[in-house]
């Protein structure tokens, strides 16, 4: 029972043991363990494809092959289509989010009038937008783009509003007292103050709206990552299905770890550590 309370730090002796208990060693061990468990699972559950079967079919999807396609693989077409919609949707949602967020943050009246609506939008799951936009616009590019925009918008708005409100009257009074020029004030007080919040909002928005674009393509589409995943799913070809699922998970995790987290940490370097930001991400995506 003592071990539940006291921190246990193993004393590594050999070099291999030292590597195994290092942070990198632990992460790699976790990945290896995952692969082993997956392979073992396929022995008991025949519907679950083996890692190797997934790699094989994804190789064909990426490079093109004898699946009735002589072009370069399907993979690139679908990702190109999805990423284009994702980018347009984010641009719309982000712009609207910054404008509305600034308005809510700056004016008490605007906040009372529209912040409830933004909270309701925040509570709406992405599949609702996928359905509504499909019913409004039918099959086409509009539904995925607008689904992304609608899911991204409230996350950006809420964060920007928070950022604007974080610029306290004290700092504004200080600026007035020292006669800081409006240009300097905008740059050092307002812009520098809200940049971190804008990035935080963008990060959360990008993660949730990735789910949105996939869902929308799943229900409505003739092209795209979500569509192709469903294609394999409907065909009962689980290696292809699982391969695409893994590809879109890798995409969003890499996007977050390699790009968004770093950008956000840079913009917020005066405020928080990465671990705190991760926790905040978990809190806000919900």
């Amino acid at each position: 029972m003592t071990t539940l309370i006291q921190e246990v730090e193993p004393e590594p002796d050999s070099a291999i043991k030292r590597w195994l208990v290092s942070d990198r060693g632990a992460t790699i061990s976790a990945a290896v363990l995952f692969l082993v468990m997956w392979q073992l699972l396929t022995l008991f559950a025949p519907r679950v494809p083996t890692p190797w079967a997934v790699v094989k079919i994804m190789w064909i999807e990426v490079t093109g092959g004898d699946y009735g396609s002589v072009r370069r693989g399907e993979f690139w077409n679908h990702y190109a289509a999805t990423l284009q919609r994702y980018a347009y949707g984010l641009a719309i949602g982000f712009t609207a989010g910054v404008l509305v967020g600034a308005l809510i943050g700056a004016s008490n009246i605007a906040r009372a009038l529209i912040s409830d609506t933004v909270l309701v939008l925040l509570a709406l799951p992405a599949f609702v937008w996928a359905f509504l936009t499909t019913m409004w616009f039918g099959i086409g590019w509009q539904a995925p783009v607008l689904t992304v925009a609608f899911t991204a918008f409230p996350f950006v708005a809420v964060n920007v509003a928070q950022g604007v409100r974080a610029i306290t009257p004290d700092l504004r009074h200080m600026s007035t007292a020292f006669g800081v020029t409006p240009v300097k004030r905008f740059r050092h007080l307002i812009l520098a103050g809200i940049t971190g919040y804008v990035f935080a909002g963008l990060r959360f928005a990008m993660i949730v709206s990735w789910n949105g674009v996939l869902l929308s393509e799943w229900f409505n589409g003739q092209v795209g990552v979500g569509f192709r995943t469903r294609y394999w799913f409907d065909a009962n070809r689980y290696p292809g299905f699982l391969g695409w699922v893994i590809s879109f998970i890798i995409f969003v995790v890499a996007l977050d770890r390699l790009v968004l987290t770093k950008l956000q940490a840079r913009a917020f370097r005066w405020r928080k550590t990465n671990d705190e930001l991760d926790k905040e991400l978990l809190a806000t995506v919900g």
Binding site: A45, R47, V48, N211, V245, V252, D256
Partner: peptide, 15 residues
């Protein structure tokens, strides 16, 4: 924590 919700929904459907 960052896996799209779609994944969970379809995976449990498959299994």
């Amino acid at each position: 924590g960052s896996i799209p919700g779609l994944t969970y929904a379809v995976m449990v459907l498959v299994v």
